[in-house]
Design a protein around this nucleic acid. Structure first.
Ligand SMILES: [Zn+2]
Ligand SMILES: [Zn+2]
Ligand SMILES: [Zn+2]
Ligand SMILES: [Zn+2]
Lengths: 156, 156
DNA sequence: GCCGGATTGACAACGATTCTCAGATATCTG
DNA sequence: CAGATATCTGAGAATCGTTGTCAATCCGGC
């Protein structure tokens, strides 16, 4: 996992919040798209984000940091990465699409309603339950969505 | 619940899909809104629907059946009923808001990707799990969303 | 029936997302 | 490396679901 990091780790790191994993940078190429400068910029920007972000937010951040990427391109790139499974996509209560660079395995999210801080969670039991329920009712090709919302410790 | 039907039930009914509960009609009044003709029309239309429906769909159906209700009113009514908890609201993959008249208790949905046919499901274990996970991470005021998608028997 | 606040509806306004298409680029070929 | 070619980009127009505006209408209570 941290294998890409040069092994210079000092012993006294200030305890990086044990929670988050080192946000892997989504790879356009891996998604079968040409790795253009713009796409890489979007991927990197998203990887830096520690919460779900909308296309507009990413675009705004890129602009603010000098990276000139057209809004339409940001939309296209995020949408494509999501389709390819390189990033996770969910919708705000208002219906806006928001994206996040997550670990590659199937998981769900525990999201802070206030600051957006997100924890990835896994629930094998739930996975089994959804499949079982669906099959019980004769539904095939089962998939599901599951998100948990709450107010994180920092925000209380 | 079939009490509004005259009791002429022959023994050979084509097996009404044993699945569905008798869709209760959402009550505007119960939601603290004046029970106007338009609102009742929307409520009834929704209750008749056996799948999630969008504001536009409801509006279209009403128009087709003679009931003249402004599109804006349909939007306002559905949104208000949802806020009041009289109906369930979820979003399509495309972000469109869709509504359904459901049983009043907390539940989730098993939805057919193709025809929208919906089964209400309950999972006490999942409820407990989400709460536990959230508290484990220090998140408070926990809520969650969970939907299961698949292709129903009729659509295969 | 009459009054005042709630509701409606036609239409404008909005915000997010997608489309269009000419010009810039990445990749491939030789 | 140059040229051919398919892909990608960006600015702005266009879509689309949804909400805001506001005069006309309706509802419930007196
Ligand atoms: Zn994720
Ligand atoms: Zn928080
Ligand atoms: Zn429901
Ligand atoms: Zn179906």
């Amino acid at each position: 996992m941290t294998s890409t990091e040069p092994g210079h780790a000092p012993a006294a790191v200030p305890a990086p919040p044990p929670s988050e994993a080192p946000a892997e940078v989504p790879d356009p190429a891996r998604a079968g798209m040409r790795p253009t400068k713009q796409r890489r910029a979007v991927a990197v920007a998203l990887a830096r984000e520690d919460a779900f972000a909308s296309a507009q937010q990413i675009h705004e951040r890129l602009s603010r940091e000098g990276e000139q990427v057209g809004l339409a391109t940001v939309y296209r790139t995020l949408s494509a990465l999501a389709d390819a499974g390189e990033v996770d996509m969910m919708r705000t209560e208002g219906g806006e699409a928001i994206y996040r660079s997550c670990s590659p395995t199937h998981h769900h999210h525990l999201v802070c309603r206030s600051c957006g801080r997100t924890v990835e969670v896994e629930g094998p039991a739930v996975e089994r339950w959804t499949t079982a329920i669906a099959e019980q009712h004769g539904y095939a090709e089962v998939s599901h969505t599951l998100e948990i919302f709450g107010t994180c410790p920092e925000c209380r």
